[in-house]
Design a protein around this nucleic acid. Sequence first.
DNA 1: GGACCTATGTTTAGAAG
DNA 2: GCTTCTAAACATAGGTC
Lengths: 227, 227
Amino acid sequence: MKIKIKKIDYLPARQVTFSKRRRGIFKKAGELSILCESEVAVIIFSQTGKLFDFSSSSTKDVIARYNSHIGGEKSDQPTIHQLQLEKENNIRLRKELEDKSCKLRQMKGVDLEDLDLDELQKLEKLVEASLGRVIQTKEEKIMSEVMALEKKGAELIEANNQLSHRMVMYPRGDIGPEAILELENLNNIGEESVTSESTTNVTTCSNSSLSLEDDCSDILSLKLGLP
Amino acid sequence: MKIKIKKIDYLPARQVTFSKRRRGIFKKAGELSILCESEVAVIIFSQTGKLFDFSSSSTKDVIARYNSHIGGEKSDQPTIHQLQLEKENNIRLRKELEDKSCKLRQMKGVDLEDLDLDELQKLEKLVEASLGRVIQTKEEKIMSEVMALEKKGAELIEANNQLSHRMVMYPRGDIGPEAILELENLNNIGEESVTSESTTNVTTCSNSSLSLEDDCSDILSLKLGLP
DNA sequence: GGACCTATGTTTAGAAG
DNA sequence: GCTTCTAAACATAGGTC
């Protein structure tokens, strides 16, 4: 599959696709009704609430036939007002989302055609500043990891020394097998599990992939060695 | 067209085609509803009278919506189901919005504390690439503006030459006041209104400010001179 | 919005199980 | 009715006008 079946973020592209695919479905529906002598109706509401429908005969007729098949019963009156409220809420959220998507795409450096020079200049400064902060944060993180590792290393050396000291004080036989195991473990820790802390995934976003096309999954790993 | 769109005479072939194409249409309908966030219902009665239907939400709801669109007659039944749907929609939108906001903030280089080294590294690459694209777009824009201005300048010089020529041919009295005005205007245009085109604001986003805290409104202006 | 284009990727007729 | 296979037909993303 080349394109992913998920909401198209970019509004103009979404509109074009809607129009093309809608016509495609209507065409297929018409073909099916003729090829197989069946009765077909397609009802589509665009995101903006506009109605598009197609039917081999009459949409109303097909709906009537549908209703009689189902066994038309009606009920429930949960206050039309409430529904109205939810819908308004919905519209507002959609607008906000559209706006955020647009800004996010611009921050990613795509769909910049409609920006004028001033706006491009501002955007550049913004992205530049962002890059600076990202790099700084990254370096701080690296430094703190390095320091943590140094501290750990120092502790290990200290522990090692103390153990060696005990070995001298009790040359043989007097230390139990537990003490020997302890020493071996400490030596291993110092050399292997250095990046263990950085593999903890914190998922503040529900989907933390910030990739441009939502599918570039190149893994960049940073290896740290002890100084 | 290889196959003619006309009733398939051979019953077994017709049945197979019916099944295949029916599923094809349902799939396309589902894709359309997701890609373009629209509400879709497809109702099909086979030749034998069997009902097949597909809907992005609920065929009944779509039919209810269809009926209210066609003419508010019949009965407005908001159907508790519809309300439920709107509420779910609402929750989904809120989540999407939260997610987009989070990603946007990260793209802006804030709230990076919870990212691990790997994620920071990826983010850096992303922002870096974005910066490259922004700069490229800006430079392309500048180049096209400069070229437009050069062209304009050349045209003005040419016009000026022609007018000077006319001045020589009709030394005095013979040119009317209109011609003099024309000449003066041309001279002014050449020196002053150079950046007029870059001040056109195109607002693709409802709010095109991409500032970090939504309040830093430093204006950066780029002045272009004729070469 | 629509009409056209071209390079993909997708669907499907026809056959067989 | 379903699946699977193939080549061929078709739809459509992403352009342009």
